[in-house]
Design a protein around this nucleic acid. Structure first.
Lengths: 247, 247
DNA sequence: CGGATTATTGAACCTGATCAAAGTTCGTGG
DNA sequence: CCACGAACTTTGATCAGGTTCAATAATCCG
């Protein structure tokens, strides 16, 4: 990476899933050059909105969420640096969920037409995007499984495992330490429990020496134990990929 | 539909999402001609298996599921006649969940290569498949929301609403009556609750005159009430679509 | 520095789980 | 065609995980 180039976490992520040609990287670089800085808690798009371009989070965190009639909130997924929303989002008439920044974030947009050309012109990019989508789906299935069949302690541990691994994959960890800009309220809204109960669960994990909590970060002191509590199997993140049969 | 042609529920479903050219329909007809009859409770593929071709359920029901270390099962989605699994499934090294028939079923397979040609040759088909995938994702998000933030009664009602609407969309209902080949055990494994408790919830819905239960079918006696209990918003099924901008 | 948001703890309560048993329905083989 | 066993449904009684309500402490942000 040259001195003048800023790292592009979107491209870095896609490289994990496929080989990108130089022209592909250049095109992606160009396509995400329009990134703008957004404050925390800013909606990129709301449920009911008509979808427009694809959002690419180049830096910072965001989340997908739904609000229920009774006012409750369910967080559906976290977008970390390099993540993006569904590539074909523009085919829909209406969003079935909202997307909001959690921290201040750098977000680029790629129009449907531009995305289509990128996909047809750069097969490596297309491949990487398809895999990305499969990973996102796998993650949703893991969440459903957690919510349905894991206890609150297992569930919280599972989410921490996931976030730790995802963060590590993109170089966001420092050893066992993970920068985690999520309040316990957000975590509780992800896990389908109350902040009060989550707080007690975290306390238990803390006291057993499994994790350490600071504001804005977690340290996974005993990863093996955490994974064992969670019944964590990282297969759904699909780091091991099928070797491509010819470019 | 000519006298000699058997209805192809896959094609019928896709027509809801995009206009298919005659050549496209012919190609799809040909691609699914290899369908074979499978018995109930037969795994199409298991967690950990290396994915092969795309499965298309032409008739009968199937489900995606995960088994947990402790033996518990979580059902992740239902595949009804016309539904198929992820179109890019072949890119992965390993399945993160299993797919199993529920009833005897007619299942066709489309190889990755064949799928790729179909997608490039028939844009309407590609469009329909992308929308299908977005609907599947929306459905998963609705399930996460249900599990996280709805009570058992709301959750059960929500699932019944979903299944009723999906069945009606493909002509599987008879008025308020819905053919539902799901045991209460399966429903409980979908909803993240015990069969015992689900049974009591269903009893309550039955006694309040909201639904009627027979073996293998449900009648939605009071759809408005059921939707109101569930807090059901059908937007995630994306029946209203964005009009295509040119072919 | 001051208001607002977040984290932590306690106590009472309730939804849904667990354990157990009886009643139904269904498929299969005799 | 009936009998049998297996799987599913239904009901009861008890228990526990997690919620709710409430109050205090800690932290952040402008």
């Amino acid at each position: 990476m040259g001195l003048l180039s800023v790292r592009n976490r979107f491209i870095e992520k896609l490289r994990n899933f496929a080989t990108l040609s130089d022209p592909a990287e250049a095109a992606l670089e160009a396509a995400t050059r329009n990134a703008s800085k957004l404050p925390a808690r800013r909606d990129l798009i709301r449920e009911g909105d008509r979808p427009g371009p694809v959002f690419v989070v180049l830096d910072g965190w965001a989340c997908r969420y739904k609000i229920l009639p009774n006012g409750g909130r369910q967080i559906l997924a976290y977008l970390m640096p390099g993540d993006c929303c569904d590539l074909h989002i523009g085919l829909l008439a209406e969003m079935d969920h909202g997307i909001q920044t959690i921290t201040p974030a750098q977000v680029a947009t790629i129009s449907g037409g531009e995305m289509d050309s990128l996909l047809t012109d750069h097969r490596g990019f297309a491949r990487a995007m398809y895999i990305t989508q499969l990973v996102d789906e796998g993650t949703m299935r893991a969440w459903i499984t957690s919510m349905g069949r894991r206890t609150s302690k297992e569930r919280a541990s599972h989410l921490l495992c996931e976030l730790y691994l995802r963060a590590r994959n993109i170089g966001l960890t420092d050893g066992i330490e993970l920068v985690l800009p999520l309040s316990q309220i957000m975590l509780a809204d992800s896990l389908g429990m109350t902040p009060v109960h989550l707080n007690r669960v975290l306390k238990e994990l803390r006291l057993s020496g499994t994790i350490q909590l600071r504001r804005g970060s977690v340290a996974i002191v005993d990863p093996a134990r955490l994974a064992q509590i969670a019944g964590f199997d990282e297969n759904y993140l699909h780091r091991r990929l099928r070797p491509a049969i010819a470019g």
